[in-house]
Amino acid sequence: MFLATGLAVIRRAGWIALLALTLAACASGPELTEGDAEHTAAPTATPAEPAPEPMPAETMPAEPAAPEPEFHPAAPERYVVREGDTLWSIANTFLRDPWHWPEIWLANPQIPNPHLIYPGDVLSIHHVDGELRVMVDGGPRVLPVERLSPRIRVEALDDVETLPISTLQPFMFRPRVVDEATLEQAPYIVAAHDERVIYGPGDRVYLRHAPDAERYDLYHVVRRDRALTDPDTGEELGIATLPIAEAEIVRGGEIATALLRTGDREAIRGDRLLPFDDEPDLLFDIGRPPADLEGTVILLFDAISQIGSLQAAVINRGKRDGVRNGQVFATWEAGRTARDPISRNRNELIELPEEEIGTMMVFRTFDKVAYALVLHSTHPIREGYKVRHP
């Protein structure tokens, strides 16, 4: 879940795993009464039969112990939340593995909305029952108190790289994947008010095949990018489009008139118009994809051969595969081939192993594909690279 001003930290109940309970039972034989003891015969000297050997009990493999949260050695004792911080960047400040943030978060019942973090809040590390926890214990929402604790050192930290939620806004509503029939039947630009061949915001353009368009209707202007195909099965996954502009209908009719509003690039004749879809929710939970899910980068958004941090890509997995907004995938670089310098066969090539090079987060999901934003990457990401459970 990303943090903006007043953004919810996390729904802790969704992160905590259930603990397994084991039950032990014991049984005892029936007790003899005093009357029964008097009538009990003395034991005879018959040889005792050997007791049957116990059957070996089936043993279940022990569940692997869940890893414990591990703090950074240089984690600050106090951290002041700033505008533009995200939950992911704050968790990275304190923990080696940010996924353990729900396990160390401690709500302060003495402040309003203890499960929310605001700019100006002071996050501090506390010892609770012998374990380290982080909570809000300073800032404008907390009454001033004198906190007595030993201090080892005080040093300034370099600015932590953050991912403000505004970074997502250029991507959140514009990427569209449609089927071939929908794109072919969509209205398209045939000309403009003058004889120019490219158009921008403020220009009036004429549309054809828009019989249902009425005044004030809003449309996305898009351009066909590429047909998407699953590299594993050959299935056609849809048509990816490039966002061009927004258009508002000013006059309907057989040849409708539209006014171009904000735009990402120049519009041209033949660009299609798709109706506005529901505005996506900018606030979603950060999570992991299904454990056994693997996908492939099949398209680089608005790029030629490679992308890096804060750029987008399309993967060949979507809603039908269990992909949801907010899921974070690990990105794996395909292993290249190298020539063995020692082998007797000078032309022998060996395939090098894959390498994990970054992470990307899904922000727009369709039925068969999804768009993901690269959160960080140590090497350029290209088509054909794999994405997996981190």
Rank of each mutant, 00 (worst) to 15 (best):
I152A: 13
G6Q: 05
H389M: 11
T5F: 10
C26V: 14
Y219L: 02
D97M: 07
P275R: 01
L157M: 11
D194S: 06
V250S: 10
K386R: 12
M135E: 14
E103M: 10
L228Q: 00
C26A: 09
E279Y: 06
L228F: 00
T86L: 03
H376L: 08
L207C: 03
L87C: 06
I189L: 01
E103C: 00
P114L: 09
G326C: 00
L32G: 02
Y79A: 06
N92V: 12
R226G: 06
A258E: 07
R226K: 15
A37D: 02
D230V: 06
S124G: 08
G358W: 08
I152Y: 10
N347V: 07
R317E: 01
V221W: 03
G384M: 02
P201L: 05
R339Y: 12
P275S: 07
A74S: 13
R364Y: 06
E348I: 10
D137L: 01
P150Y: 08
G130K: 07
A13I: 13
E248C: 08
A240H: 09
D264H: 09
D36C: 09
H376M: 06
W88N: 11
E70M: 11
N113I: 04
T22R: 14
E34P: 08
L23T: 06
V250D: 07
N325L: 05
A186S: 15
R324P: 09
G326T: 01
P280I: 12
V323A: 02
D217T: 00
T46A: 15
R82N: 13
T5W: 13
A107D: 13
A4F: 08
G202Q: 03
Y188D: 04
D159Q: 15
P76W: 08
E53S: 08
L7R: 08
T182E: 15
R215D: 11
D137T: 04
E184G: 11
R174F: 13
I111G: 02
D292K: 05
C26N: 14
A91E: 02
Y385E: 14
G335L: 04
H379K: 12
P98H: 01
F301H: 14
P76E: 11
G234T: 04
Q327P: 00
L352H: 00
